[in-house]
């Protein structure tokens, strides 16, 4: 499932009767937003069936005066479920980018493997906000972890490209594209 420039609110339930994932095949959800504009998007994925597996990959860029907010949540309600959220973005000029990623392990979840990863690279005067939430209501957890980072683009990599005659702006673009692959 691929969502381009997503906006509004979307709710998906992964159930052995609804969206079926057989033999551990994951439901891949790709979120992409590289276009100009301000958008707010909320996604909630409820993992109900046993062995449900969902991987959400999100890539976003914010430029100019864009304001983009993504709120992505996975709710674990069954046995042996796997859920991964990976959100990566860059923000440049005067834009604002926000990622709220939540893994919610309810008391019904058993042996869940939950991961939330959020990373933003900021350029110029852009601003970023991250909120990776982990809510755990059971001790039967296989793994529940999250990580988040905001960093500037690597100085070393920039220098490498510039020393080979590539302008700073172009070098930033190349590194941005690589980061968002």
């Amino acid at each position: 499932m691929k969502l381009k420039n997503p906006t509004g609110t979307k709710r998906i339930v992964i159930d052995n009767n609804d969206v079926t994932t057989r033999h551990g095949a994951p439901l891949q959800i790709t979120l992409e937003d590289f276009d100009r504009g301000s958008r707010e998007f909320n996604l909630e994925v409820i993992l109900k069936g046993e062995n449900a597996h969902c991987e959400i990959q999100g890539r976003a860029t914010a430029q100019g005066e864009d304001k983009k907010i993504w709120n992505v949540k996975q709710v674990f309600e069954g046995k042996n479920q796997i859920g991964k959220i990976e959100l990566r973005g860059t923000a440049s000029e005067k834009s604002f980018l926000q990622f709220d990623g939540t893994a919610e392990l309810t008391h019904k979840s058993v042996d869940a493997d939950a991961q939330v990863r959020e990373k933003i690279i900021l350029f110029d005067e852009a601003r970023g906000k991250l909120l990776p939430i982990l809510t755990v209501k059971t001790d039967k957890v296989l793994g529940a972890s999250h990580s988040a980072s905001i960093a500037p683009v690597s100085e070393d990599q920039l220098l490498y490209l510039q020393s080979r005659g590539i302008s700073q702006k172009e070098a930033e673009n190349v590194l941005r594209e690589g980061f968002l692959k």
């Binding site: 933003i120 900021l122 350029f123 110029d124 005067e125 852009a126 601003r127 970023g128 906000k129 991250l130 909120l131 990776p132 939430i133 982990l134 809510t135 755990v136 209501k137 001790d139 039967k140 957890v141 793994g143 529940a144 972890s145 999250h146 990580s147 988040a148 980072s149 905001i150 960093a151 500037p152």
Partner: peptide
């Protein structure tokens, strides 16, 4: 019950902020 709610707000592009968390038994 255990919850982790870390707010990260950054208004300067030279900053490097990392956060990691895990919950388990």
């Amino acid at each position: 019950l255990s919850d982790t709610i870390p707010h990260i707000k950054c208004e300067n592009s030279t900053a490097s902020i990392t956060h990691e968390a895990s919950a388990g038994k």
